[in-house]
Nucleic acid binder design. Structure first.
Length: 807
RNA sequence: GCCGGGGUGGCGGAAUUGGUAGACGCAAGGGACUUAAAAUCCCUCGGAGGCGUGCCUCUGUGCGGGUUCGAGUCCCGCCCCCGGCACCA
């Protein structure tokens, strides 16, 4: 081969790797293990997006380097194959989603293989495969067994266009995370997973793992712990107690009214006759509002009086109970004590309805706005004179003593709505029996297979298409044998991905979801990279499932991921999201066709800092293309196809060795730090340097090829072979930096005079301070600024600079 | 509003235990090769000014202050952009 022919080279080496099973991970090796993981793709009909290879290449580079460093590397791949887009496409084209999924997986597989990723394809998992979802169902049953999966009738977020219920995490700004359509509240019987039982541990255990700081903070914020107190209010003339949660029990003396969420169970019970009409109208109106509407008109406070009064336990005063939709049913107890003097929302409400405002903390002007800051308590009985912190503690204790409540913790995290009313998902393995209730499908009968259906269309009524298959729905109760029905809802697409990383350790096991020794060997995952958009979805869900399985004794570590990083998105050329409608989509197939996988990979790494958003640049990829062409010509004579005439054996000159070892150091470090763009820059510097030489030492070039190999593995293998080597670059040890080559004999010292750079001088590295000062002061350039002036001070920074202060 | 992350040439971006700002790449301009073009190779490339045409001076990292011999980097006060959350009591 004479000229660089990416097509031939890439095909050749991909075949070589596959035939030699060079990337199959070995269970139980003597080598240290390294498990690195990318988020497996959802095989959409559009094929691979140029964003996918950014993450895959980055971890491929790390995986390849780790192999060369002597690790037993597991870098697996699979497909998150259940989900709505496939189902919607199936409905439109009248093709079975299974067929579409197979087709899409075939396309993705071809594309991923063409990019030369070092995935262990033998461990591929597909979540829609019965041999896989059998275990997803099995885990669900374990959750059910432990009371962490339960069915409840609660108002949930209903996406009008997807026609499914959404988890709290799937609602973004009142809209559906997937389709962007409006979301409304609907009361529906739903399967729920009790992720809230793990709220505290999901926060605490972040201490033991290395996550990007922003990921950790985002998760903590999402779980949203708040510390405060529960307080029981009695209702005047009633037996019922009204419980509220507050983070400010210190302000209890300032509570001048109460508010219930419209959905609160007590609303109906306590409303007096005269107010029934107005209250029920208000409650009905609130029900009809979507989340979006509720938050959009957020500023204007609305509400109605129930006619009932609660007694403030601090001072025994009766205070009116109102209903207002600024109080949410889903947080705390769905009811609040309102302290208008010290909470802006309550202040706004009190102002609107002329309710009294009492000052209990000094420091603000409550006639103008609520004062939420620090201060000394007043008008507050036994709390008077205390500061906020002291008063919170004193009040909490007082409440506990009087059995009126006491310290309490609440979380923003909600339980996970786990039912979807659609076809293409894992059937929930539960049978509903009139006499036995919810009965789990026995383990031996798993998996509950998805039946074939004629029509996949979901209904507006929120029934799964499975409900229409009467034969399938009707089934004897596993417990009593009587007539019963199957659950027809399916699992959300986050189910399969909540444990796939465990399956990779033992993907073909049909006795267990994974062998415990294999789990012990491979887990935890050493590095998991993915998108920021999954921080409060998949990442949180999978941590929850792993913790649950840990508690059951099925997995060896409570946290699945030792380290979590995130990559930035790749946008279109104009800085906008790539989309068909904008016409700015870059197809990976075209890039591979024109430039090849190596150029593609290197470009994605060079495009910008890995964790930041980057815009695709057609011109930019040309630069990388030129770089690899330059690398080729550095080594290969294009006329003969042999080695470049300049290639020579023998000891390289010191300057080159220094540059090489600098490159070894930087490339190695920057790969570890995921600063791939600067790693490539450094390799360019070395190549530029080599181009200036008349004699190119083979020794240098060989090491360079090894450094390049994780980035551009195909061209590296080819050049390695041309350099006369027989074994794959993957079998070579990763080059080591020898510090002795880094040291130079001379160094450049910068001379600053009054803070300005005035000269550079070259001197020996072991020059003494005295000689250095003498040498500096003798410089013409220095004399020019020091002559006739008084030298006040000379600062010397070893090996860097001399700073002279004159007047 | 709250929590993150940022603002550096025409562009993507380098440089953080404070020490020559602009590495590397793109674009642009000039030159070499060629009948010509492409490709390739070499040179120039933040701005302003000066002459002895090779250098010199001033200025410059969102804005305003400060610390320091020295600030893109540290401190104080602002402005703007991006991401996440948002009536969470």
């Amino acid at each position: 081969m004479k000229k660089y022919n990416h097509k031939a080279i890439e095909k050749k080496w991909q075949k070589h790797w596959e035939e030699n099973r060079i990337f199959s991970a070995k269970d139980f090796s003597d080598k240290p293990k390294y498990y690195c993981l990318i988020e497996f793709p959802y095989p959409s009909g559009d094929g691979l997006h140029v964003g996918h290879p950014r993450s895959y290449t980055a971890l491929d580079i790390i995986a390849r380097k780790k192999r060369m460093e002597g690790y037993n590397v597991l870098y697996p791949i699979g497909f998150d194959a259940f989900g709505l887009p496939t189902e919607n496409y199936a409905i439109k084209k009248k093709i079975h989603p299974k067929i579409i999924t197979e087709r899409n997986i075939a396309t993705f597989t071809r594309q991923l293989k063409e990019l030369g990723f070092s995935f262990d394809w033998e461990r591929m998992v597909i979540t829609a495969d019965p041999s896989y979802y059998k275990w997803t169902q099995w885990i669900f049953l374990k959750l059910f067994e432990k009371g962490l999966a339960y069915k409840d009738n609660i108002p949930i977020n209903w996406c009008l266009s997807c026609k499914i219920g959404l988890a709290n995490e799937e609602v973004v700004n009142g809209r559906c995370e997937r389709c962007g359509g409006p979301v409304e509240k609907r009361n529906k019987e739903q399967w729920m997973l009790k992720i809230t039982a793990y709220a505290q541990r999901l926060i605490d255990d972040l201490n033991g793992v290395e996550y990007l700081d922003k990921i950790m903070k985002q998760q903590i914020n999402w779980i949203g712990r708040s510390d405060g107190a529960d307080i029981k209010f009695s209702i005047q003339g009633g037996k019922e107690a009204l419980k509220v949660f507050t983070t400010r029990p210190d302000t209890l003396f300032g509570a001048t009214y109460m508010v219930l969420a419209p959905e609160h169970a007590l609303v109906e019970k306590i409303t007096t006759k005269e107010h029934k009409e107005a209250v029920s109208q208000y409650v009905e109106a609130a029900k009809k509002k979507s989340d979006l509407e509720r938050s959009e008109i957020s500023r204007e406070k609305t509400g109605v009086f129930t006619g009932a009064y609660a007694l403030n336990p601090a001072n025994g005063k009766p205070i009116p109970i109102w209903v207002a939709d600024y109080v949410l049913i889903s947080y705390g107890t769905g009811a609040i004590m309102a302290v208008p003097g010290h909470d802006q929302r309550d202040w706004d409400f009190a102002r609107t309805f002329n309710l009294p405002v009492v000052e209990v903390i000094q420091g603000g002007d409550i006639s103008r706005e609520a004062y939420e800051g620090e201060g000394i308590l007043i008008n507050s009985g036994f709390l008077n004179g205390k500061n906020v912190e002291e008063a919170i503690a004193a009040m909490s204790n007082w409440l506990k003593e009087k059995e009126l409540g006491g310290p309490a913790v609440k979380y923003k995290l909600r339980d996970w709505v786990f039912s979807r009313q659609r076809y293409w998902g894992e059937p929930i393995p539960i049978v509903i029996c009139r006499s036995c209730g919810f009965v789990p499908v026995p383990e031996k009968d798993l998996p509950v297979l998805l039946p074939d259906v004629e029509r996949y269309e979901p209904s507006d009524a929120g029934e799964s298409p499975l409900a229409a298959i009467k034969d399938w729905v009707k089934t004897p109760c596993p417990k009593c044998g009587g007539p019963a029905e199957r659950e027809t809802d399916t699992m959300p697409n986050w189910a399969g991905s909540s444990w796939y990383f465990l399956r990779y350790t033992d993907p073909h096991n049909d006795k267990a979801f994974a062998d415990s020794d294999k789990l012990k060997y491979w887990m935890p995952i050493d590095l998991y990279n993915g998108g920021m958009e999954h921080t409060t979805l998949h990442l949180l869900y999978s941590r929850f499932w792993n913790k649950f399985l840990y508690d059951c004794g099925f997995v060896p570590f409570s946290e699945p991921y030792a380290r979590r990083t995130a990559h930035g998105m790749i946008l279109g050329e104009g800085g906008e999201k790539m989309s068909k409608s904008r016409g700015n989509v870059v197809n990976p197939d075209d890039v591979i066709e024109r430039y090849g996988a190596d150029v593609f990979r290197c470009y994605e790494m060079f495009i910008g800092p890995f964790d930041q958003t980057a815009n695709w640049d057609t011109k930019g990829i040309e630069g990388i293309h030129r770089f690899l062409l330059r690398v080729w010509r550095l080594i290969v004579d294009e006329r003969s196809g042999g080695l470049n005439d300049k290639m020579a054996e023998g000891v390289p000159e010191k300057g080159l060795l220094r540059n090489l070892h600098q490159t070894i150091k930087i490339v190695g470090e920057h790969i570890n730090q995921m600063r791939f763009n600067t790693a490539i820059s450094q390799m360019m510097i070395l190549v530029n340097e080599l181009y200036k030489k008349d004699r190119i030492p083979v020794e240098i070039v060989k090491v360079f090829v090894l450094l390049l190999s994780p980035f551009a593995p195909h061209i590296a293998e080819e050049l390695w072979e041309k350099l006369g080597e027989k074994e794959s670059v993957l079998r070579q040890p990763w080059p080591l930096c020898h510090m002795e080559y880094l040291a130079a004999e001379t160094m450049t010292i910068v001379v600053q005079i009054n803070g300005k750079v005035r000269a550079n001088i070259d001197c020996s590295v072991d020059i003494s301070r005295e000689d250095l000062i003498k040498m500096v002061l003798e410089q013409e350039r220095v004399k020019k600024y020091t002559e006739g002036k008084k030298i006040h001070k000379i600062v010397i920074v070893p090996k860097k600079l001399v700073s002279i202060v004159v007047s």
